[in-house]
Amino acid sequence: MAEKKPSILNRLRNMTDTNLLLTITIVMFFLMYIGAIVFQGKGFLKPQTFFNILNANAALIILSVGLSIVMISGSIDISVGGVTALVCMSCAVHLDYKGGNVFTAFLLALGIGIAFGFIQGILIAYLDIQPFIVTLAGMFFARGMTTIVNTNPFNVENPALVALKDTRIPVPFLGSYNKLGEYINAYVEIGALVAVAVVLILFFVLRWTRLGRNFYALGGNRQSALMLGINVKRTKFYAHLLCGFLSGIGGFVYFLHVGSGAPTHAAGAEMNAIAASIIGGTLLTGGVGNVIGTFFGVLSLSTIQNIVNSAGLDDAWWTGITIAAMLCLFLVIQSLVLSRKKKK
């Protein structure tokens, strides 16, 4: 007879990969946050600290979500950071030197993102070229183009954009009292709202639409997806198109956050986005992943960076080493999860 109440261990063992990895990620995030509160003092208890992390990482969340979708469908895109830099620089030049307005700048951002997604998608899906090579070239092209558009970094002075950049949306009930006893509202920036909206929309798309399910099917097993009658090439193309579109949005959100254009913007963002997706439980081999996990992956990454910085290791190289170490750890966890499946 099967036992009536399965133990937690058994329940963990019988979980699907997606849920298991998602659980690990969320538990990891809360452990890390509690660790931060215990070791770094009360600063992390304030809701605003959390919202600051959200504000600073809104663009990264959007980029990572796009990357997760590509990874779920069994491909990869490392051009997102370069595209972000290109979008920032193009929008900055468009606003300050060409006298454009914020709306056309937004359209420009979307256009650049979609163009990258479209071309890379065609090359990868229809010409069967290795995604890594195509997007590596895309990354170098975007970085090079950024310098060609404008070499020197500069701050945008367009009043409409500055106003948007400084817009703070108050969050009710979560404010705190400062030293003088005045109540200060907690706030989020526009970008953070966009990021949360993107995560929610894509969560529904991945879960309940045919396209979303096709992404999983394609990443899980290309051959069986083909036999199920899924147009694998078009699905892969859509994944890259969507990722390009999201890097356009992410680039614009980044632009809203920093309000400037510079060739060094979003340096290493592709790495952070890949790390966030992997920490969030997306398998490199495809077929497994969840955008909610990616969301928590970004937050974990940022929390650990905050811990490292406030622990006095604020030299720039520690951040790189920490992210690499975390990525390494989660890659090994993934490898173990995969071998678990094989044994069963």
């Binding site: 590596l136 070239a137 170098f140 183009m145």
Partner: peptide
Amino acid sequence: DALPAYKAIVV
């Protein structure tokens, strides 16, 4: 800094 763009096209 602009070199990578041209090389990317070659790739």
